[in-house]
Nucleic acid binder design. Structure first.
Lengths: 125, 125
DNA sequence: TATCTGTATTAACATGTGTAGTACAGTATT
DNA sequence: AATACTGTACTACACATGTTAATACAGATA
């Protein structure tokens, strides 16, 4: 499903959160699609189930997935604009990052072409 | 100079890196301006000098400041486009964040107005 | 010389991350 | 009812990272 960097200083469960979020955003994982079970994904990635659960819990708290005891974890349908807190956080992060990008020399045109590239979300890297 | 959140899960030295980077980007700290000394800033913020040094070291490795033994630490003049590695990192981060923002409901127009807001860097929050 | 600067090293402690094992509760299948 | 799957919770341990503390050294400055 994806690869992890065990040498990275970034925590494994946060790498997982990031990767899964990307898959959801890019619509590789569809609305209400079932994610691998905690134990199954742990086995696939040869890491501990607790670590998977930690990532799933984080994704759930951010509104990207929902979990049902006994059934599994699923992609939360993206009724846009519903997750207001996340949106506020992302807007602040974006503001900072845009300022940094411009400081480092990116032009507004470059950034706008990045937006176009990303818009629609049908790019799978 | 600024405030820190000691309850935050984010490391203090990383908060420092972030805050100082913002001040440099927004031109509050001018080219070659002297930063507070390691010990002085540590005293002001009532944290350990080692933590300040760790932040300064990180900022230096990212090209935002330079340090001279016996003299102090100073803002690195921002010859734009020179720090290619940082720019690449920021571009990748930006791409991810833009995708996330759009997923959460932000429009291209909103993002472009954010760019205009940030461009020039004369906003001090 | 005295005092400022950055830098380095060591030890101690707290916190966060990851693993391991176990357990419980809800769901589905047979 | 039995079995096997699901998420969830908990304890314990090991390890890495973050932070403090104390000390020391070297370069700059007055």
């Amino acid at each position: 499903m994806f690869e992890l960097d065990f040498r990275s200083r970034k925590a494994i469960y946060l790498q997982l959160v990031d990767k899964l979020k990307q898959l959801i955003i890019k619509d590789v994982l569809k609305d209400d699609e079932k994610l691998p079970s905690v134990r199954e994904l742990a086995h696939q990635l040869t890491i501990n189930p607790n670590t998977i659960q930690k990532a799933y819990r984080e994704l759930e708290s951010q509104g990207y997935i929902y979990s049902v005891k006994g059934k599994g974890s699923f992609v939360h349908p993206s009724k846009k604009l519903e997750n207001v807190e996340e949106l506020k956080k992302v807007r602040e992060q974006l503001k900072k990052l845009l300022a940094e990008a411009i400081y480092l020399g990116m032009t507004a045109e470059e950034i706008e072409s990045l937006i176009n590239e990303v818009e629609g979300g049908e790019k799978y890297d």
